[in-house]
Design a protein around this nucleic acid. Sequence first.
DNA 1: GTGAAAATTTTGCGCGCGTAAAGTTTTAAA
DNA 2: TTTAAAACTTTACGCGCGCAAAATTTTCAC
Lengths: 333, 333
Amino acid sequence: MEEFAAVSGISRPTVSKYFNDPDSVRLSTRKKIEAALERYEYRPNIFAVNQNRKLTKTIGIVVPYLADPFFGELARNLEFYCVEAGFRPRLFSSQGQQDLENEALSSLQALKPAGVLLAPLGRKSDISAIEKFCQNVPTVLFDSNLPDVRQAYIGSNNSQFADLIVEYLCETGEPPCFFEMKTPANPNANRRRQGYVQAMERLGHEPCIVQAEGEGWDFEEISRREGARALQAKQFKTSTVLCSNDRMAIGLLTACYELNLGAGRGVNDDIRIAGQDNHPFSRYTCPPLTTVSQDYEAISKNAVNLLLYAINGGAYRQESQLYDGKLIIRQSA
Amino acid sequence: MEEFAAVSGISRPTVSKYFNDPDSVRLSTRKKIEAALERYEYRPNIFAVNQNRKLTKTIGIVVPYLADPFFGELARNLEFYCVEAGFRPRLFSSQGQQDLENEALSSLQALKPAGVLLAPLGRKSDISAIEKFCQNVPTVLFDSNLPDVRQAYIGSNNSQFADLIVEYLCETGEPPCFFEMKTPANPNANRRRQGYVQAMERLGHEPCIVQAEGEGWDFEEISRREGARALQAKQFKTSTVLCSNDRMAIGLLTACYELNLGAGRGVNDDIRIAGQDNHPFSRYTCPPLTTVSQDYEAISKNAVNLLLYAINGGAYRQESQLYDGKLIIRQSA
DNA sequence: GTGAAAATTTTGCGCGCGTAAAGTTTTAAA
DNA sequence: TTTAAAACTTTACGCGCGCAAAATTTTCAC
C-alpha cells in the first residue's frame, strides 16, 4: 500500500481511507487512485486489514456437514444475505467431527469476525468451547439448538412439522409409523418424534416408532439397510411411513424399490413414504417426495438479520425464533 | 503470545518455536509450555502467523459450486489428504459466479497458501486472472481443465467414460442416445459427447444427440423439464439414454416417472437411463443409476500429491493425469 | 484577500506474530 | 573439570495494514 500510494501520488493513510469508503476522499483524489488502480492492480490484503480493524466485515458460517446438500443450500442462502448486507461470509464445515468444529471456531476467532452463524454438530459438540466462543463473538445458532448454551437460535418449529404431516397422512390414508435414527445427531429429531407421538395421540391413533441403528452422516445408506430390515420384519404396523428427515426417506424409497414394493399414493401402491425438510433432492426422487418444507428463506434471512442486530449492539441472547413448515404434497404420500 | 510466554516462564520466541515444532525445544521447556497451555488455553492466531511465514501450511481448495454434492464429496476427500499431509485446507466455493471465483483467488493470495487446488468454473472463468494467479501460487487444476492456462491438471479420462458405457449399453440392449446441456459449463461435457460419438461410430451405430436448453447449476430441473419435452417429442431415437452426467440422469428419471414411463433394465421397462460421475446420490435413485464412476480416490489423492510435489519445488506445470472411470452397473440400465 | 472548514499528509503506534543475529545458559561429551 | 555444542533469551526488525492526533494544504464562501 505504501508503494501503491507513492505511484498514485497520494499518502498511504488516504489510500487506506479510500479502500474503506471510496466516497470519503475528495473526488480528485479518488480519480487519481482509481487511475493508478487500473495500471497497477493493487488490492489490500484482507487478512492484514482484519487484523487491525476493530469491527470486521466478515461473517463466519459454520455448518456440520457440507456434503449434505441441505446444508449446502442453507449455506448458499446465508451467504447471499450476508453479501447483501455488505459483509463477507466465510464458510466452514465441521465434517461431523468435534475437533473440526472447534478448529473452525478457533480459526474464526483469529479472523475477528463481526459475527458468526453456527449450525452446531449437536450431540457431538463441545458445549463449553461453544459457550466460551459465544461470549467473545456475536453468534446466532441455526438449524440445531444447543439448549445448554442459551444462545440466540433460529430454526424450525419441529413439533409443528410432525403435527402438520401426521394430520395430512391420517386424513388421506392409514396413520403413519415413524422412522428415525436410534441415536440422532441433534435435538431436532427428538422434537420431531415427540411431535409425531402427540399428533398421533391427539388423533386417536397408537404411535409406532421404528429406529435405525447406525452412526455417522451416511443417512441414506443406513436408512436403506435398516429400512429394508424393518420392512421385511414387518415392523411398520401400517402402510404409511413418516421419516424423521428427507435423507432417510430417500434411503427408504430405495429399500422399497429393491424389495419390489411400490411407493406412492396411487391405489396400486404398497406403501406411502413422507419425509421432512424439503431437501434439494426430494423433488427428484421417484416418486417425488411428500414432505414438510423448512422455510429456508425465513430461516436464513432472519438468522442474518438477528446477527446484524447483535453486531450493532442489540441485546439478542434471549431471542429465538421458530418457523413453521409448509406441507409439500408430491407423489410419495 | 507475549503474555502467555510470561506466565509460562519462557521467552516469546521460544514459545513461537514450540508452536512451529514442539520437538524443537528442550523437553523441560516443552513441559513447561504444555502445563501453562492447560491452564491458559492460548492458541496462536493463524492469520498473523501466516502473514509472516515464508512458507505457509495452508492449502486452498476452490470448487465451482458447493451445493452440488459431487463437489462436496470431492472437497471432503481433498481436505482429508491435505490434513494427512500436515496441511490446513481452506475451502472456497465460486457458487457459479466469476466474481466469486476471482474473489476466492484474491483471498487466497492474501493467505499466502503453500498451494491451491482449483476446480475452475470453466466457460465462466476469468482466464487471465487464473493465469496470473498460477504464476504466483503453485496450483493444480482438477475436475475441469483450462487448456489455455496450460497448468497441471488432474481429472478423469472423459472420452473413456463414454466409450466404456456406450459399449456396455450396446451389448445389453439398444444403442444409447446422448442427453446433455446445450451450453455446458466446462470442457468435460464436450469430451464426453465426442467420446460418445466416436464409440457409436466404432460400433457401427448412428449417434443421436439431444440437447437441453437452460443456464445455471440447476441441472436436475433443467433435465427434468427438457427431458420431458424431448421424450414427448420422441427425440430419443432409441429406448436408451446416456446422460452427460448423473444429475441430468436424475432429472430425466423424474421426467420418466411423471410421464409414467418405466425406467430400468427390466423386460417390462420402457427406457434405460445411464449417467456419468457416480454422484453420491446415484446409488439411491429409483431405479438406482447405472453410471461410470469417477475415481474420486485417485483424483483427490493424486491432485494433493502433485501439489505437494510442486510445493517442494518440483517442475509440475506440464504434469497432467487422467484417470479411467469404472462401470457401475445398477438397475437403471 | 481573508478565514474557517474540509480534506489531506505526516507522524507514530499498534495488531499478533515470524525470524535473524547476538549474547547467555544448559547439556553432554571429552 | 573443561569445553564445545545445543538450547535458550534478548534485541530488533518486519509483515500489511488500521487508526488517531497533529500539522499542513486545499477549498469555498464571504
